[in-house]
Nucleic acid binder design. Structure first.
Lengths: 208, 208
DNA sequence: CCGAAATAATTAGGAATCCTATTTATTGGA
DNA sequence: TCCAATAAATAGGATTCCTAATTATTTCGG
């Protein structure tokens, strides 16, 4: 009866519209468009990548991606290098100009960040935790490519501590942390086994 | 330090990519594209609308919207009627065909809904509550147009009851409910005053 | 009551995404 | 060695999406 899933989906849909619209604004004044900005962002976060994996990451066809990369190439923001391991493939990397431009782009629309900052920390922690579980589930269902979430990381030890404010532990930085510090895209991420991912998910669900 | 806002924003960004990509798939087989599907969806939920408000709701320019409406018009899925109240304006409405097609479209990508269904109810409730507050804040900041949220509704009485599972009350259906039954887009919504919206937000934040 | 400013929509012009299908080159297994 | 699979580019086309300009209408100040 509560229909919670549909309402959450509606909220995500609403935010999607906002994200795209806001993205146009912030990005257009730098001569880009949302698709190009997303490519730059992905390259900045994850480093050089093959086009095929970029296409998968951004959820567009390889042909579309090729179009967009060609645009960026013409602007001198990315470069193509042959992949030494595979003669068919090409690796796309940011140029210095591209990296500088990317660094100047906001990570998210300012009003969204400020709205998020106004959420109480427990509220934000709960949201982040739920979104982590959601993205993990989508990844598990092969609906989205592999992400770099705490909840799928070797270093993540949920509920190792008794401290309610910081029950989890990160083995990489060797520190305790709480839901509000969960990561969606952590540079130090190391994928763990399927078994352990499932165990972590079960543990989080049990406590939630 | 926790950087929670950025991580949540990253999650929303990731879901945005997924939403658009998934939308293409489900919608393309019906001869539509995401923009057109969103127009049909909005008309189905909210009824006939002027183009200017459709454009605002979907976050595109009036010119873009005009393009998309022309496409839908050519397919016979919507009709334009002159607005009796304003000779400049046009009201766009679903045709019978359009309504039938829209009804057959999934509200959200199936893997997303099933991932959401797998969230524990408390987790989902917390997420919905946080997303409600987030969308309310964006609306208050004039970043998005007015939505039909419980938390901005005349009928919403937060924490009227002692029952932890169903503390809120809806004056329209005269029933108690919990976070998991909060609505993002409620057909029975009636906008309340700015003062009361602020009071509700403060109350929710205090408890959260 | 009239003119100016604002508003709703369309049109013009153009760039770029995005699709599917096809082609080319390369890889890797049988 | 041969053949299927893969990576990318290309072809072709529909459509979104933008800004700017145009037309019609409404609203509001004087």
């Amino acid at each position: 009866m509560p229909d919670t899933s549909r309402q959450i989906a509606a909220a995500i849909g609403r935010l999607t519209l906002y994200w795209r619209a806001a993205s146009w604004q912030t990005v257009a004044e730098r001569g880009l468009n949302p698709a190009q900005a997303e490519i730059l962002g992905h390259l900045a976060r994850r480093g050089p990548a093959r086009q095929v994996s970029l296409a998968a990451a951004l959820g567009v066809s390889a042909a579309s991606l090729s179009d967009s990369v060609a645009s960026l190439l013409a602007k001198g923001l990315v470069a193509r290098h042959p992949d030494p391991k595979d003669g068919r493939a090409v690796r796309v990397a940011l140029t210095e100009t591209g990296a500088a431009l990317q660094a100047a782009l906001p990570e998210a629309p300012a009003p969204l960040l400020s709205a998020l900052d106004d959420l109480p920390e427990t509220e934000a922690g709960a949201a982040l935790r739920a979104l982590s579980m959601l993205i993990r589930a989508l990844q598990e269902a092969r609906a989205i490519p592999v992400q770099r979430l705490c909840v799928t990381c070797t270093y993540f030890q949920p509920y190792r501590h008794d401290d309610a404010a910081a029950p989890h532990h990160c083995g990489f930085v060797d520190a305790a942390f709480g839901d509000a510090a969960l990561r969606i895209d952590c540079a130090d991420h190391e994928d763990t086994t399927e078994e352990r991912r499932a165990a972590i998910a079960a543990r989080l669900a049990a406590v939630g």
